[in-house]
Amino acid sequence: MPTVHVEKDRCKGCELCTRVCPEQALGMSEKINAKGYFYPVAKEADKCTGCRRCVLMCPDEAIQVEVKGKRTAPPEALTGAPLHYCPGCTHGVIHSLIGDAIDHLGIREKTVGIAPVGCSVLAYNYFNVDMQQASHGRALALATGIKRGRPDLAVFTYQGDGDLASIGMAETVHAANRGEKVTAIFVNNAIYGMTGGQMAPTTLPGQITSTTRAGRDVKHAGEPIRMVELLNELQTPAYLTRVSVHDPKHILAARKAIRKAFKYQMDGVCFSLVEILSTCPTGWGQTPHDACGWVVDKMTPYFPLGDKKVPEAA
C-alpha cells in the first residue's frame, strides 16, 4: 500500500494537496505545526493510490509518497532550505520543476542560476547550484556575460513579470534577439508580489492592485503584455512557450517544457524562455485554491498556453 510522508513543519497549510487528492485520502490536521499551520494527514490512508499529485502540487516540498518501497525525493538540485514564500504561492512548485530539469539532464555541477529582484530574490538559497544575484531587471544581461565567458555552462534566469517584462524589457528582448543560449524562466503572477501588490505589466484589465485601486484601466496603463507573443515577432530562432502550474496535469506539462528549454540550451540550439502562469494568493487577496482557479478562469484566456515558437533544428 502506498504511504504518504508529510514533513509537517515545512507545511504552510495552503491545502493545495488535499484539494488535488482525487481519492480524498488527505485531510488537514487538528493540531498546528511549529509554524502555526494545520498540515495534511493521510486520514484515509487506505484510499491512497500513490498517484503523487500531492507531491507535485506541494509548493513547500513537504510531501513525499512511497510506493512499493520506492519513495519520491526532492530534487538534488534544490538545497532543501525551507522556502520563504507565502502559503500556497506556486513559486515553490516552479523551483521543484527547475530542480527536476537540472537533475534530469545531470547538469547540476555546471549550472549557474541568476536570482532576480522580486519575491524570488532569495532563490540563491534554494537552488543547489552556483548562483549570482542580479539587480532588478538585469538578469539576462548577467546571463549573457556568464554564457559568453563560459559557453560550456548551463545558465538560467528566474524572473518575475516586473523584472523580466517591465524594468528588464530591453535586456529580455535583446538577449532573445541575440539568441543567447540561456534559459529564462519567466514567472507571470500578474502582480508585483515582493513590493506589496502593485500593478505589473501583465496585470489583467480591471484587476485591482495597490496602484490600480479601481482596476487596471487600459486607457492609461495599456493592455497586459504577452511576452511570448511579443518575442515571437523576433526573427532569431528560439524556444518560446507558456505553461501553468495550477494543477498536477499542467505541472507535468510545465516540467516537460522546462526540461526541453534546458536541453535546447545545452545542445547550443537557441535562446529559450518558459513563461509560467503562477499564483500570488497574498497579492490577489485569494485563498491558494481560488488563486489556482483564477489562473484558469482569468489568466489563461488572455495568456494562452502552449508552444509559440520551436526551433527548426528540433
Binding site: 516586473g162 508585483y192 515582493m194 513590493t195 506589496g196 502593485q198 495597490s210 496602484t211
Partner: peptide, 10 residues
C-alpha cells in the same frame, strides 16, 4: 514601486 516608499505612488 520600491520599498520603503511604495506608499507615495500608491
Amino acid at each position: 514601486p520600491i520599498t520603503p516608499q511604495n506608499e507615495i505612488p500608491e
